[in-house]
Design a protein around this nucleic acid. Structure first.
Lengths: 226, 226
DNA sequence: TTGGCGCTTAAAGATTTATTAAAAACCATC
DNA sequence: GATGGTTTTTAATAAATCTTTAAGCGCCAA
């Protein structure tokens, strides 16, 4: 799960980052408003923690614009205790409003609660440990995979790629996005992805004209349907 | 919208009730744990405001049991400021945790935010991800298209062009504009657009004298009406 | 009604993109 | 430092898409 942290104060940002990472989240950060706005639109971002007072583009504005474009939990963090700000932020579509200083444990608990609810309500089991899908079963913590109750052994990277697919069913994932999210790199050759997809298909016995699991969308990427 | 208030202290209960009613909600109340548990299962209840310290059956327990049975927003209200309680309540599936004394305005804002989000996430797939228009349905993230519930497969560019049309209904798009926005190029031959439009019409079974979807405007471009 | 301009159509050629297999680089373990 | 497995790169091949072309048709105005 990836959390985006938009916060201009470096000390606070690092503190929050540490706690979220300790809780097992992947954390991306942004310092300034416009940068935060852009980052929050990235599809791999599962939740946004947003400071209200930011340079150039404030949190209210980001919140409003983001809500127009994407359905992602937004947790506002602010030093302002004023009722007016709380009401305004929540009215603009924020999911929560935390007043600084807050306890890191509470923040982590709230982040988890928002993600869990989002999962529950949208039916995306991004948090579930065992995911099942047309005969394909993944145990994420054990990193094991079965096809029609027959276990198949995937290598580490192969598992990561397949996991990305099953946690994003019905979505087209471009090679670039897969590479970004699994390898976490910007350099490198995306044809690596192609090869891994081939290996996965091979192991899932998913070759042939009409792949059962990972479909190819020419010029766009790959898609796994539920 | 109906709110259930489970709170044993009469003064607080009446205060909260007044504010919620002033905000236009219908309010039901319950004083004791078991009574609250039962009431919260009633289908007309859209959101539950739950005190933690209740006689006979405490808020944690109600929260846990309720979550097993129903998907309804739960807002915990408590005098306990302890992190431990917050983390526990949120972990059990509560949607929010407010510490007493809180401002009524904030409570009302939070109640509204929870209801709005619940609507957003459950009421139709929300997110302008799926666009429907006179029998034509597009799923943008999956890049799939249906005509009268029959799926049609478009190529990548074809999809891009059609997406441009459905996101700009009623607008005349000139070939130049389409070329600019889909191809992102300034050089090149705009007759490519013509060919793509033809292919799309063909696949949508939109040929014939009176096209159902993409209309030709002589000397101007094309238009898709809503 | 007719000429011209713009749109449509179909098909061939060019280009892009994906697949595959095999080799090379990498990595952990013994 | 050899070994076996994994991961990445590479290059040839295959497949699908995109673009161009050219001929024909239809709309509109003179």
């Amino acid at each position: 799960m990836t959390i985006l942290l938009v916060e201009d104060d470096e000390a606070i940002r690092n503190l929050e980052k540490d706690y979220l990472e300790a809780a097992g989240f992947t954390v991306q950060t942004a310092e300034r408003g416009p940068e935060g706005m852009e980052a929050s639109l990235r599809p791999e971002v599962d939740l946004v923690v947003l400071d209200l007072m930011l340079p150039e583009l404030n949190g209210f504005e980001i919140c409003r614009r983001l809500r127009e474009q994407r359905e992602v939990p937004i947790l506002i963090v602010s030093a302002k205790t004023d009722d007016f700000d709380k009401v305004r932020a929540l009215g603009l579509g924020a999911d929560d409003y935390l007043v600084k200083p807050f306890s890191p444990a509470e923040m982590v608990a709230r982040v988890k609660a928002h993600l869990a609810r989002f999962d529950r309500l949208t039916g995306k089991n991004a948090l579930a440990d065992v995911i099942e899908l047309r005969g394909l079963r993944l145990n994420r913590s054990a990193r094991r995979v079965w096809v029609d109750d027959q276990e198949v052994t995937l290598t580490s990277k192969e598992f990561d790629v397949l996991e990305l697919f099953v946690t994003n069913p019905s979505r087209v994932l471009s090679k670039e996005e897969i590479f970004d999210r699994v390898w976490g790199l910007t350099y490198g050759d995306v044809s690596t992805v192609t090869v891994h997809v081939r290996k996965i298909r091979e192991k899932l016995a998913d070759t042939g004209d009409e792949p059962r699991y990972i479909k190819t969308l020419w010029g766009a990427g790959y898609r796994l349907d539920p």
